[in-house]
Amino acid sequence: MSVTKITTSAIAIVALTATAAAAREEIRRVGSSTVFPYTQAVAERFANTTEFPSPIVESTGTGGGMQIFCGGIGESFADITGASRAMKASEYQMCQDNGVTSITEAQIGSDGLSLAVSVESPHDWDLTLGQIFLALAAEVPVDGEWAANPYTNWSEIDASLPDVEIEVLGPPPTSGTRDAFVELAMHAGCEELEYVQNGGFDGDWVEENCSRMRTDGPFIEAGENDNLIVQRLQSDPTALGIFGYSFVYENLDTLAGVKIAGTTPSLETIGDGSYPVSRPLFFYIKNAHRGVIPGFEEFLTEYMSEDALAPGGYLNERGLVTLSEERRDELRERVANSVPMEAPAD
């Protein structure tokens, strides 16, 4: 009897303190899973070298991160969100509506998207974006008509390609990697096609017709877990997988990057732009939280330091493709002075 009384009163006390114990000591980061490993590295470094509590780094995906970040000002909303694409106009508006008026945008570098095969693969893969589009799109030109994708074998697309079944494992639509792949590889591949070039179609047409991945088998949505895709590739050496380059870089003993138009993905080719499929990585800073959350300034200083961002820095070692020196200086300046971003155009 008394035990029950004690427990119920204990719960009551705990429940009351729950709302009181909200004063946040640590930095909170949400957002893209692609930027996650970099923020993770900075956070661990920061926790090890300063007296401040460890930042909380959560991977929610770019869109999910924006929802939390733009939710408002205050302890329950994140201070930083990572994004594997620039903030959309609608997201900026949501931020404004919720009182998050001053945001600083920081591009920390870029990340390549890479098709990869198992190192056991018997073929030497070299694809053009057009071929990738023909292999993976839901609808492609067939004999001058825009029709459902008939290709089941790589050699049907081009005789020079290996005579194996098309089998590509990729991320689901909720993933930022998928968004980026559609935009950077599929749209660009679509625009390379003769049918599209001769037809005089504009960008809107491309976006409308070239964005759908095929669902009849050759393209397989394999979930967000890249390690699972690696295991599938190892058991099936003729299959291809779609990854962020930083992941391929960590697994170079099991994965080989597929050349695109003759260029092998590497830190160098992605950095100088010669590898065509790469995207910028951002993080967004809520300026209203600066000076309020303890250690926020120091965290940003660590993030912006040459140790982190420069070539050979610890983010570069994790696979981040770095910015040029002027752009790093300009970025550091902008973050230090908390220059707010302008409303995005689209």
Partner: peptide
Amino acid sequence: IGMNAFITSAPSGPFDS
């Protein structure tokens, strides 16, 4: 509810992340 965050220290109470 976000209990999959990356945190390099153990929590000291039930309200720490």
